[in-house]
């Protein structure tokens, strides 16, 4: 996979500076003064129990939510200052997202689902088709091009979701519990896929409870507890 985007001055794709997110005044923050830098090509696994702030961190990186204080910079873009429309453009161009429950559109074919981000970004039709074909083939789901998601297995659906996430060649792939809704075999399949993508140069942030997944694909792991980074370690092995 080719790397796109402009890294920060230090070569980081992600930089969080003193980020705090509080949902209700007086309540403990979901994220508390978190600072973090992720270099291009890293695969960062974010671990932690429920309520530790994992999803909040992911939402801030995706531009789906804004910090109460602090700065979020992704691929040179200050995500925390973007307007709604600029956030949409940012997600379109710099982020690929993979969800636990796939979030594929049931009434679009596999190909149409994959094409969607390119079409929203206004990519010329031929180029988009070529890119989708390339991705579906790379992810070994090209035989399901005309099928609807409802007819695919969980692992296949997640592959479609990954293809869709990579459509616009985002510098950063965000994955939220990507194996959380999969059986063991499908989970294994997705783990290998993410590891392969990272080996090909894709920067990945994945949020998970699954330590096996973290060990299999992450080059680095952080552990969140009560909104703070308790541990930050490079994975020993894949």
């Amino acid at each position: 996979m080719r790397q796109h985007g402009v890294p920060t001055a230090a070569g980081d794709v992600i930089r969080l500076d003193g980020v705090t997110r509080t949902y209700q005044t007086g309540a403990p923050p979901a994220l508390a003064n978190v600072s973090l830098a992720v270099a291009a090509g890293e695969a960062l696994a974010v671990l932690g129990p429920s309520g530790s702030g994992k999803s909040t961190l992911l939402n801030l990186l995706a531009g789906l939510d804004k910090p109460t204080s602090g700065q979020v910079t992704v691929d040179g873009v200050r995500v925390d200052t973007l307007s709604e429309a600029a956030s949409a453009r940012y997600r379109r161009e710099r982020i690929g997202m993979v969800f636990q429950f796939f979030n594929l559109l049931d009434d679009l074919t596999v190909l149409d689902n994959v094409l969607l981000p390119a079409q929203l970004a206004g990519m010329p039709s031929k180029r988009a088709q070529a890119r989708a074909t390339e991705l579906l083939s790379y992810l070994r789901i090209d035989r399901h091009t005309r099928a609807y998601p409802g007819r695919l297995s969980g692992g296949e659906r997640q592959r479609v979701a990954v293809a869709r996430a990579l459509m616009n060649r985002p510098p950063l792939l965000l994955a939220d519990e990507p194996t959380g809704a999969l059986d063991t075999a499908s989970g294994h399949e997705v783990r290998n896929l993410l590891a392969q993508l990272n080996q090909d140069g894709q920067t990945i942030v994945l949020v998970t409870h699954d330590t096996t997944l973290a060990e299999a694909c992450a080059t680095r792991t952080i552990e969140l507890t009560d909104g703070r980074i308790r541990r930050d370690t490079a994975a020993v092995a894949r």
């Binding site: 995706a62 789906l64 709604e84 429309a85 949409a88 453009r89 940012y90 997600r91 379109r92 161009e93 982020i95 997202m97 969800f99 979030n103 594929l104 559109l105 969607l116 981000p117 929203l120 970004a121 869709r164 616009n168």
Partner: peptide, 16 residues
């Protein structure tokens, strides 16, 4: 609303 969320997560702007 869920589809809308997906569209927006994929980069659909408010105008779109």
């Amino acid at each position: 609303v869920h589809d809308l969320g997906v569209f927006k997560a994929l980069g659909m702007s408010p105008g779109q």
